[in-house]
Design a protein around this nucleic acid. Structure first.
Length: 630
RNA sequence: GCCCCCGUAGCUCAAAGGAUAGAGCGGCUGACUUCGAAUCAGUAGGCUGGGGGUUCGAGUCCCUCCGGGGGCACCA
């Protein structure tokens, strides 16, 4: 069974995206003001030579080849503009190169740059290596866990994720959603936005009522012991119930009759629920709580702390008020007098010829509300009651049309923040044998995968690190096992399906969380052997290429934070964390620290300390723990 | 029929419109008396689905075709 927010297509980007102020140039943000100075000089040069159409100077990192620098393609752009204006001023690349050469020759560089050169139309600036290394390392160590944290943006963002149905059980599809939403929330928050985490459990609807019916019919009065067991049991009842309610080929007339009778019973329960019948409500409330208890336990295990829970059952009433207003304003058509529902002909209202947003039903003919109706009310609540500036819905891709309709109807309604709503669509998790289906009982539950992950890691720890035992081993096994699972979900782009299979989901080698955690462990291992407080200053020495590489990786972190938050892409951070770990592993292999000469040792200890910090922070943003040993 | 997404190494996937398209897994060859080998180094593997276009510059943007997936009135 699809969870309430488990379907649809892609909302065109731009809607609620965070505006890019300017590209933080990775670690080169270190020399931001100096780069700004040079940019000004370049612009002046253009003006002085009658090239007013030259675009703004943007710095990109110099293709990394062992030293650092920044480059700008502004001459290429200016040359292209010039060629368009003058027609036949020569080939653009030649023109650009000439321009770049003239400009670099005339630049007077601030001391952090050692030289400027013109290459293939680019202006390349090279940084003073030692000053750069020092700036990076000392900045990291001075700021510690706050290194990379963005300045407050003065904007409040709500991230809605974790929307499982009650009366079902949390499966790995839900896990992808939860893990993605949590990483996004952490990134957005760290990037400088005030962040509210919201969850929207589907605690009412036909699926829920079917389960309640099944419970009453088949298991009245029963209750298994244990939070997880109870939750899972409800999911089984749901499967059991749907089997009885489903039309099957080759049914006898008697079976058919029975099925119709059952369906009528389900409808009656739904009616009673709607009417507030105390008995039905009580049964619903009790079973619902079992699911919510299970959810709480899982969120705890995932270190997800939701601040606001919205329940479908609670936005039911307010949503009907909106429907009345939509009818009053002529946006919605009330067809109930002729036995129809209340609808919004979205395309017609927008004057579109093709079927794009289609016609949306916002109220059943019997006057009960729908999923769509509730989302209209929910959007309003988010902005008005929680005063958010932006609202992100992390929901799987099958519900894209649903959200397009929600946002468009809000827009038609005149709701000003409709443009501030953004559906972050992600693809689903499938099984090798096909889509998961609670209805068919074909589901892989999160708890089972988590248990297996922890079991496997425990075995590996026992083998590789026998000193670690007891509760410590348990803790490490959880950190590593769940980390691997999380990373497997985050290191694939949202638009790609994940086919779940045990081996790749629980992969501990290569590009996987344990690899990154291991790098952190190694860094911790080195630092643990040094008595006293770790060094906080850089020491000038000849840099090994692996050191240069690692410093570069460390320096990129703040930029990656901003980029991940702006693009709503935890994937960027997942890739970055791996790249950083790889740079560290390479460094570890090639550069002895404890055996190095005193000056080199001091510098490398500072570097190890900085790298450890950033590994820790980036894993943390992904919701993955970084233990000191494993 | 209409709307949307995806096609990149054998497989799974990366890649701010920028300089020579990168990783992992799998294959092959090497490196533990060393700060932990859950590691590292090397090697092989590609007309980025096809064709047009925009641009100084396209895996990335536009058009078109092919292939795969998803969604389309009273489910959530």
């Amino acid at each position: 069974m699809a969870s309430p927010r488990t379907r649809g297509l892609f909302y065109p980007p731009g809607g609620g995206r965070i505006t890019v102020v300017h590209h933080a140039l990775g670690g080169q943000a270190m020399f931001e003001s100096e780069l700004g100075q040079v940019a000004q000089t370049i612009t002046h040069h253009f003006l002085a030579h009658g090239l007013p159409e030259a675009p703004a100077v943007e710095w990109v990192p110099l293709p990394f080849a062992g030293t650092w620098g920044a480059a700008t393609s502004v001459c290429l752009k200016a040359a292209a503009a010039f060629a368009r204006r003058e027609q036949g001023g020569g080939p653009v690349p030649v023109l650009a190169q000439n321009l770049a050469e003239a400009i670099t020759a005339s630049l007077s560089l601030p001391p952090v740059f050692i030289r400027a050169e013109a290459v293939r139309g680019y202006i390349n600036l090279h940084f003073d290596t030692q000053r750069y290394a020092q700036a990076v390392i000392e900045t990291v160590l001075r700021n510690a866990e706050n290194f990379g944290r963005g300045a407050p943006k003065g904007e409040r963002v709500m991230v809605e994720y974790v929307q499982p149905n009650t009366h079902h059980s949390f499966h790995i599809g839900h896990l992808r959603n939860a893990v993605l939403g949590e990483a996004l929330a952490r990134l957005v928050q760290f990037a400088g936005f005030e962040t509210i985490r919201a969850s929207y459990p589907g605690d009412i609807g036909l699926g829920v009522i079917r389960c309640v019916w099944g419970y009453q019919k088949l298991h009245a009065g029963q209750e298994p012991v244990g939070v997880m067991e109870r939750g899972r049991w409800l999911a089984q009842i749901y499967t059991e119930a749907t089997a009885l309610l489903e039309e099957k080929p080759g049914q006898t007339p008697a079976e058919h009759e029975q099925r119709l009778r059952f369906e009528a019973e389900v409808k009656e329960i739904y009616r009673l629920w709607d009417a507030g019948d105390p008995q039905v409500r009580e049964l619903w409330r009790r079973t619902r709580q079992w699911s919510l208890d299970e959810l709480a336990a899982i969120l705890q295990m995932l270190d997800i702390h939701i601040e606001v829970f919205f329940y479908e059952s609670e936005v039911d009433e307010p949503s009907k008020v909106i429907v009345d207003d939509l009818i009053a304003r002529g946006i919605a058509d009330d067809e109930r007098s002729s036995g129809g529902p209340v609808i919004v002909r979205v395309d017609e209202k927008l004057g579109l010829k093709n079927d794009t947003y289609r016609t949306a039903v916002i109220l059943r003919s019997d006057g009960t509300s729908l999923y769509l109706t509730k989302d209209l009310a929910l959007a309003k609540t988010k902005f008005e009651q929680y005063a958010v500036d932006r609202s992100i819905y992390v929901v799987d891709v099958r519900q894209s049309l649903h959200f397009q309709q929600v946002f468009k109807i809000l827009e038609l309604w005149g709701f000003p923040q409709a443009a501030k709503c953004y559906h972050l669509a992600h693809e689903i998790v499938t099984l090798p044998e096909g889509t998961m289906s609670a209805r068919k009982g074909r589901v892989v539950y999160f708890q089972d995968v988590a248990d297996e992950a922890v079991r496997r890691v425990e075995a590996i720890v026992a083998e590789k690190n026998p000193d670690l035992a007891g509760p410590q081993r348990q803790a490490v096994a959880r950190a590593v096992g769940l980390g691997a699972l999380r990373y497997a979900m985050l290191s694939v782009d949202n638009v790609k399906q994940i086919t779940f299979d045990w081996e790749s989901a629980l992969s501990f080698d290569g590009q996987a969380a344990p690899y990154i955690q291991y790098a952190h462990v190694r860094a911790a291992g080195i630092l643990a052997r040094v008595p006293g407080a770790p060094a906080t200053t850089w020491a000038e020495h000849d840099l090994h290429p692996a050191e240069v590489n690692l410093i570069d990786a460390v320096a990129r972190f703040p930029g990656e934070v901003q980029r991940s938050a702006q693009d709503y892409k935890p994937l960027h951070m997942a890739n970055y964390a791996y790249a950083l770990a790889k740079a560290f592993s390479d460094f570890y292999q090639q550069c002895p620290v404890l055996q190095a000469e005193p000056v080199t040792q001091a510098a490398r200890l500072a570097l190890v300390s900085a790298a450890k910090q950033v590994l820790h922070t980036s894993l943390g943003l992904l919701g993955i723990q970084a233990p000191d040993s494993m």
